[in-house]
Nucleic acid binder design. Structure first.
Lengths: 228, 228
DNA sequence: ACAAAAGTGTTACACGTACACCCATGG
DNA sequence: CCATGGGTGTACGTGTAACACTTTTGT
């Protein structure tokens, strides 16, 4: 039995949530869009395998991926029985731009405009989307998707992208700040408004310490968690 | 590469949370306590494989197990490279008593008094324990562990077992009832007190509909989620 | 009558939401 | 000087926690 790993990389460029895809380089389904996948070698752990596969197909390094799910239906791969361990990560696109050279044919797609994918990869993406929404509602996960310095309106925009809705900006900023996870900087970002919005930095120590203990980052969480 | 499944079955007998274990029947490590495990066959899905393995080793049928995690370190099995997909389930022990005949040598152990286990099975149990605590804090998961009719004090006792602490009974019952998930019966349970406690039934429809949308079943969830 | 468990009432307070309004500034 | 986005203040309702107190009934 073959053991594969498929990697789902979500990215944020300041405007949209995107998904990284590659053009499959071999048969079957050569030339179609696909997640980054490969087989686990007999002598490597799952962590090493996922890192190797991602690096080989996209150039990305030191991306922290998390195991999400295993798909193992008998007919999911047309050639041979293969189970696939789906891994996923979230990254700030700008921070990895240099690694994603044109040597690799990986491309970012807006999450709302993903092309048809091979095999059961669309199912994998759906699983990952649900997981993202669930986790980001309860934990400060999305904070990681932004540059080292970011503004609250930027963060709010990101949340609005993920949940495909709009939040009240005044309540949103208070809620976020009440966690004590953000450290206000002296400078302001004046790109998006005349008044300017303060930059914030993430308090890394508090972030890792309390990651699991912050709940309800979105208003009316019941509404959003219901369907997931 | 071999693909195995290991099954973690948590049970509740009205008093304690227990873990189902078997005595391993073959080398290596023959005669030691172990989770129920086996290999996935080329022609069966993961769902079928986990059900088959559990049935073969314990007699249990139609237990809904959930995929938890994959362990795949290269050295985890001394004989051959094996990855294991950990599955877990929660059951009301009394409801499955008949299936667990003595033909199979499966035994229940109090979760606090689990004997040494083979390979990395203790690690698997720890992963499952954390997962249980996390999920049960946010969703009405534990309601399933009780008989069709149960009292609030019974449910509270179960929560106290899982979180190894005590809750205020008055606030607990209000919180649970405020979800609207329970339907009060006319009879009372007089086994544990003279006044008697009302029996309740789970509103199955509401339960499945709203499973994801109820949050914070335990007081001070931050405290409990912090370390997980 | 008493003990012991079940459950109600009460209160203080934190939190969530809605929304009026003020602030800063580039054009 | 005003349009625009950023942000504070205020008000109200709901949820939570703590705990005094009542209810029930077997012994």
């Amino acid at each position: 039995m073959l053991v594969a790993i498929d990697c789902i990389i979500f990215g944020f460029d300041g405007r949209n949530i995107k998904l990284l895809l590659i053009k499959r380089g071999f048969e079957p389904e050569k030339g179609k869009w696909s997640l980054m996948g490969g087989f686990v070698r007999p002598d490597e752990s799952l962590e090493l395998a996922s890192a190797r596969i991602l690096k080989k197909l996209t150039g990305l390094e030191s991306v922290f991926m998390e195991q999400l799910h295993v798909l193992g239906d008998t007919n999911r791969d047309p050639v041979e029985r293969t189970i696939s361990i789906v891994h996923a990560a979230l990254i700030d696109i700008s921070r990895y731009e240099k690694q994603l050279t044109s040597e690799y044919h990986a491309e970012w797609f807006n999450l709302k405009e993903v092309p048809p994918l091979i095999f059961d990869h669309e199912r994998m993406v759906n699983i990952a989307k649900k997981h993202l929404r669930y986790k980001a509602a309860l934990h400060p996960l999305l904070f990681e998707l932004l540059p080292a310095k970011f503004t609250i309106p930027q963060l709010q925009h990101l949340f609005e992208e993920v949940y495909e809705t709009n939040f009240d900006n005044r309540n949103f900023s208070r809620k976020i700040l009440s966690t004590g996870l953000l450290i206000r900087q002296k400078e302001k970002d004046k790109n998006s408004s005349k008044k300017g919005a303060y930059y914030f930095k993430l308090d890394k120590r508090k972030y890792t310490e309390h990651f699991r203990s912050f709940l309800h980052f979105i208003p009316n969480p019941e509404k959003f968690l219901k369907g997931l």
